[in-house]
Amino acid sequence: MRITCPHCGARDRREFYYLGAEDYLHRPAEDAAPAAWDAYLHLRDNPAGATRDLWYHEQGCGAWLLVTRNTVTHEILGVRAVDGEATE
């Protein structure tokens, strides 16, 4: 499995640290209802197919990446820097 870092190019996935679902990018407002916080902290989908999650290029440029991948085929469908432009 290879991930194309927008800065460094195609690299082995072992250079990357996996954080988890992209839900971490959607933090509820401070005064949001407890249900929203519960969903943000604890509730995750477990799709068989396309999913989006956060990876960190720890052995490379140190960028946080939003990776779209297929959990069934392990195909990487898209990568973009959380604060920048897309590749692939």
Binding site: C8, R11, E15, H57, E58, Q59, G60, C61, G62
Partner: peptide
């Protein structure tokens, strides 16, 4: 230049 691991060392 590149940011890349050397073995397990960044």
């Amino acid at each position: 230049a590149a940011r890349a691991p050397v073995g397990h060392m960044l």
